[in-house]
Amino acid sequence: MKAFDYAAPRTESQVVDLLSPQAGHTEIIAGGTDLMGLMRSMVVRPDRVVNIMEVESLRELGPDDQGAIRIGAAVHLDELLSIPYLENYPALGQALRGMNSMQLQAQGTVGGDICVQPRCWFYRSGLSSLVDAQGVIEQGDHRNHAIFGNAGPAKFVSGSRLAPALIALEAEVRLLGPQPDEQRWIPLADLYRIPRLQGQRHTTLEAGQFVTHIRLPAVDLAQGGATSGAYEVRHGEGPDYPLAAAAVKLSFSGSTNGVATISDARVVLGQVAPTPWFSEEARRALIGRVVTPQIAEEAGEAAVLRATPLARNRAKVQHAKVAVKRAVLLAAGLETGGF
């Protein structure tokens, strides 16, 4: 590991002060579950590391005045898993339980997961940058790489395991910086981008800017609000990363013959593209329908209709299809378990 300077500030503005305007100079560490490995293998070589775990406001967790749930970036995953409000957001609970390593849940943080570096074994072993200008990934073993959004030089997949669920649930994130009082809320989906140029990262965060909070809009399932579900396709049990993931939020409107029809759907896939991936096709396949295993299957097929797999990752299309189908069934309560 390269030597670096270290600071553990106590306030958000101190964090901003410590961040460098120069990209790649400073890294923020929270749980360290991913960053430490990347720094050890010298893929990430910061000059300064800022530990945000001592900032009290980033440990905030609970409802605000409007009933929205505010989650500080430094909240541990198992802390989030243990709050009672989570039952209104089933997709988030299922995604959290999917990370079924006790240590990962105790040490990892929500902010760390949504900002986590992409999953790409070429990048993580130092063989390629995120933007694969040399075609290393295209010619190599890319069985785990993108099947959507991969026309450009970025072929990696988004690594966040909470982002699909959070985006389906219409989460927003609060960004602070580069000026100490410069804050704004943006939809979580807008945090991610597909890099096209060398040096660009997988998020839209500017140098000197960081994620402080996540906000989930108020939902009351008991009052007939929207329901949700999330499913990860994994190679096996254990702490493996998923091959594909999907999260679905379903809103229902007036029932016909006592059966609720879907008035709106948000279908977000994970681990299949350089960003969490909205499926407009799956959304259209669900609207106006009553959830049945047949409709869930059709939503899965619609979701992968426009997939563009590389030469050696066609299997991933099937994984994505199953993930969407299972997420729809989980959201509708037609299937349980799976995490």
Partner: peptide, 13 residues
Amino acid sequence: GRPVMASTTLAIA
């Protein structure tokens, strides 16, 4: 009291 991996934890923290 929380299970944490010492290999991915900075001593100074």
